[in-house]
Design a protein around this nucleic acid. Structure first.
Length: 354
DNA sequence: TCTGGGGTCCTCAATCCC
DNA sequence: TCTGGGGATTGAGGACCC
């Protein structure tokens, strides 16, 4: 979806159309969640940018608090359109999905129709990429933003992106780009030319093999209809770093209560209770402990979380505090039953409606 | 006024068990 | 009995994504 949160806001308040709109939190440490294309164009505002920087660059933009219930509602409508048109839909976050178009007579016509339906039902636009794999569909969908539809084969992509940074591939982030550059790899073509053995010795067997495949824009990740929840967490970044242990413990108790409330709602129970701490110097620390039996019991989660905090006993001011539960038991979540897309002999096209 | 919140997956080391 | 090699599990840390 294009500038999803901002676009939903524009639907709620059409009088803002054409103006730069930025969705972000209100605190001193808030970051930008979404910027409308006007805000991007005018001042280079993008998601994850500190809200304070955005306000300095573009004081006259419209700044809005996120309204997640509205985004969830809009997202559900969009996904409903996808599911009524295509059998295998993998939802990734509120504003992105992969569709298995294998076997369709005309993937392009189908996606044009779906995009039009989404627009008719929700007033929102999306960008579509159609290609031979999940990864290529995603890369391709970026080319058409906003509201575009692009079809690109792997063969054409290899030519088109030959001189681009490997960072173009989803999953290759800034750290990996830097490590690749350090061994003389700055372009996709250079990555594609390296032996698997060399990449494996630098990055380890799994990551090396993965990079070797991605360098040739090769990807066989299946489209999976639904995924099991592996963990759930709640965290808070304080407006001002916290030094007092008592205050930290008070926040931890509140976080545990919030987490348990959400876990209970989804009937999730887990064995591994963890805490996460970010200190003022940005070092991250996590501690966890596994209990005998799966639980979402407030008393147990709170007790273990407090024990972990007391054992670690932060020696610097704390910026962020979080609680997490993981190692969930099998079929606790009714919507989480795993199901995989049919393998599809003739992989004509996958598409991403990112 | 520098850097959110909610996730997934991977690596590596230690430990236990077969 | 000694030794070694695998798995599986835990725990910590980090990269990455929406």
């Amino acid at each position: 979806m294009d500038a999803f949160y901002a676009s939903v806001e524009l639907g709620k308040r059409p009088e803002l159309r054409g103006k730069p709109v930025v969705v972000c939190g209100s605190g001193p440490r808030a970051v930008v969640t979404t910027a409308s294309y006007e805000a991007r164009k005018l001042a280079g505002i993008h998601s994850a940018m500190p809200a304070a920087v955005a306000r300095r660059r573009l004081p006259d933009a419209v700044y809005l608090r996120p309204d997640f219930p509205a985004y969830r509602e809009a997202s559900a409508q969009v996904m409903e359109v996808l599911r009524r048109n295509v059998e295998t839909v993998e939802v990734v976050g509120l504003d992105e999905a992969y569709l298995d178009l294998t076997g369709l007579y005309s993937p392009k016509a189908t996606m044009r129709r779906i995009a039009a339906e989404i627009r008719a039902d929700t007033g929102l636009t999306c960008s579509v990429g159609i290609s031979e794999s999940r990864m290529l569909a995603k890369i391709t969908s970026e080319l058409g933003k906003p509201a575009g539809l692009v079809v690109l084969s792997r063969e054409d992509a290899l030519v088109r992106f030959a001189g681009d940074s490997p960072g173009l591939v989803p999953g290759i982030g800034p750290k990996t780009v830097a490590r690749l550059e350090a061994i003389g790899i700055a372009t996709l073509t250079e990555l594609a030319r390296r032996q698997a053995s060399e990449l494996e010795s630098t990055f380890g067997p799994r990551s090396g093999a993965w990079l070797h495949a991605r360098g040739r824009l090769w990807d066989e990740t299946p489209i999976t209809v639904s995924r099991e929840t592996k963990s759930q967490s709640t965290e808070i970044t304080f407006d001002v770093d916290v030094r007092q242990r008592g205050e930290l413990e008070k926040h931890l108790v509140e976080l545990a209560a919030e987490l348990c409330r959400r876990l209970a709602k989804r009937e999730l129970e887990g064995r591994t209770i963890g805490i996460k701490i970010r200190l003022d110097d940005w070092t991250n620390v996590s501690r966890s402990h596994s209990v005998e039996a799966p639980t979402n019991d407030l008393a147990v989660v709170t007790r273990v979380a407090l024990e972990l905090l007391r054992a670690y006993d932060p020696q610097r001011p704390v910026r962020l505090l979080g609680v997490r539960l993981a190692s969930f038991q099998g079929e606790a979540d009714p919507v989480a039953a795993e199901s995989e897309a049919p393998a599809g002999q003739l992989r004509l096209g996958f598409s991403s409606a990112a």
